[in-house]
């Protein structure tokens, strides 16, 4: 099944611990891309990902949000992270890990980008990268 394969590729590439985690990250990245890509690039992407993924590429508004930046992109990814590592007694037992999960989020986003890139030709990759917000485009290119 293309979706399962898609996820498996990502899981292996990113050494994710579980299928659930992989799926959550993948879905977040796809959703974030849906917010930011203009219609032509979004169409291209939609046609390349497994059918099960198409639902995640549906946009909330009809236009991409021109003010969507790397911070907002990360916001999508971070909130799906299982960012628990250790409870800090000095603050009543809370777990701060999520606050520092930016780098992990970028790493994971790159894994998803890698899987996407493998399904695009070089022209399509360039085209997609060119419409991504600053920094996000770099993550995509380096994936």
């Amino acid at each position: 099944m293309p979706w399962a394969e898609f996820l498996a590729e990502i899981q292996t590439g990113g050494s994710f611990q579980s299928r659930e985690e992989t799926e959550a990250t993948t879905v977040s990245v796809l959703r974030a891309l849906a917010e930011v890509l203009p219609a032509p690039q979004l169409e291209t992407l939609t046609s390349r990902v497994p059918p099960e993924a198409m639902v995640f590429l549906r946009r909330t508004g009809s236009q991409p949000d021109p003010m969507f930046d790397s911070h907002l992109f990360l916001g999508w990814v971070v909130s799906s992270l299982d960012a628990t590592a250790g409870r800090d007694k000095t603050v009543g037992g809370l777990d701060f890990t999520a606050a520092y999960s930016g780098e992990e989020a970028i790493r994971r986003a790159r894994c998803v980008f890698a899987a996407i890139k493998s399904r695009l030709d070089s022209h399509e990759r360039q085209d997609l990268a060119s419409v991504l917000p600053d920094e996000v485009d770099a993550w995509f290119r380096e994936a």
Binding site: M67, L72, G75, W76, V77, A99, G102
Partner: peptide, 12 residues
């Protein structure tokens, strides 16, 4: 924090 929605508000 990374991804905090405050960034959007600041930018806005």
């Amino acid at each position: 924090c990374a991804g905090c929605g405050d960034f959007a508000i600041l930018k806005a």
